[in-house]
């Protein structure tokens, strides 16, 4: 980032740390009417897995939420040495249903909010369609480039869990570390200030995460017990199906309670275990497709269940 840029964005002031960028995004999307949610309390591969996106993009009920989601991709672990790659990183996720007509402008506003001066940078919407084979989901949209760097993914959901999205949700995903490194002018993720550099105890991203990246990389690649993981996968799969097989009317309360979310937790679990198994290198090319298909089948069943619930648009 040049001196110029900092001077030009003086009206908002350039952010000084990773957390400030997150805080500004939170404030921005809150001001635009989104419910600021908290991360989902399970291991997921991307912000899309949060039920606030996956399940809430289904059915007709309007929705607007934004949140940070820690995401885990075991195969991307580099022991904290690669300047850009991490097995644990943060995504910022926005989902609005139905997608508002000014979503692109809203999005550009969020870039200004984190200190990107539209008058000096070159922002481009470059075709990039999104597909998640494990969620049985796809949409059309772009990757957004800022001066040639991909800073976000912008998608209009067309299908999730095998269901057509109607109305359509607009989804924005920001790769927070990469975006922040760009805004803050940092070359190696571990050097990035996590809190304010002038704080009494300044912390870098490395202070917070270097050691954990090492620990998890070792565990992901070499130590995780694959027999146990395989068993957990089977168990999660079975549990998901069992949950959804229950009668809709709860015999104890007499209420209609479809347990779409508890079932979906098992789907998330299976998906993450699959990622771990993949990192351990015990899944062959042909098996890979089969595992993805099994997770997708769970996601579909959960989506089928969710659309029968009140939040899924079914009249109570």
């Amino acid at each position: 980032m040049t001196q110029n840029t900092i001077a030009a964005s003086a009206s908002t002031g350039a952010p000084r740390s990773f957390q400030e960028i997150i805080l500004r995004l939170q404030a921005y999307w809150a001001s635009k009417g989104c419910a600021i949610m908290q991360p989902y309390d399970m291991e997921v591969g991307a912000g899309t897995f949060h039920p606030a996106t996956t399940l809430r993009s289904l059915g007709s009920a309007p929705w607007a939420a934004a949140y940070v989601q820690p995401s885990r991709r075991p195969t991307d672990g580099r022991y904290g040495e690669n300047p850009n790659r991490l097995q644990h990183y943060y995504q910022y996720q926005v989902l609005i249903k139905p997608s508002p007509p000014n979503l692109q402008e809203l999005y550009l506003g969020s870039l200004e909010a984190i200190g990107i001066d539209m008058d000096l940078h070159d922002i481009r919407f470059v075709e990039d369609d999104w597909e998640s084979p494990t969620l049985g989901a796809w949409g059309l949209g772009w990757e957004v480039w800022c001066d040639g760097m991909e800073v976000s993914q912008f998608t209009y959901f067309q299908q999730v869990g095998g269901h057509d999205c109607a109305p359509v949700s607009g989804e924005l995903t920001y790769g927070l570390e990469r975006l922040a490194m760009y805004v803050l002018g940092i070359d190696h993720v571990m050097d990035m200030p996590f809190n304010d550099p002038d704080a009494p105890i300044p912390l870098t991203y490395g202070d917070v995460f270097k050691q954990t990246e090492e620990e998890y990389a070792r565990w992901n690649f070499d130590v995780a017990n694959t027999d146990v993981l395989l068993r957990h996968f089977e168990e999660a799969e079975a549990e998901c199906t069992t949950i959804l097989a229950q009668a809709h009317i709860d015999p104890k309360t007499g209420k209609r309670i479809i347990m779409a979310h508890p079932a979906y937790d098992q789907c998330i679990k299976a998906s993450h275990i699959f990622n771990l198994l993949d990192a351990r290198g015990v899944i062959s090319v042909t098996e890979r497709q089969a595992y993805i298909g099994r997770v997708r089948a769970l996601a579909k069943q959960c989506a089928d269940a969710f659309v029968q619930t009140e939040a899924g648009g079914q009249a109570a």
């Binding site: 139905p98 508002p100 059309l140 067309q158 109607a166 109305p167 607009g170």
Partner: peptide, 10 residues
């Protein structure tokens, strides 16, 4: 070659 819906329209 590929088209989409958006918002609440069809």
């Amino acid at each position: 070659p590929k088209s989409m819906r958006w918002g609440a329209g069809s």
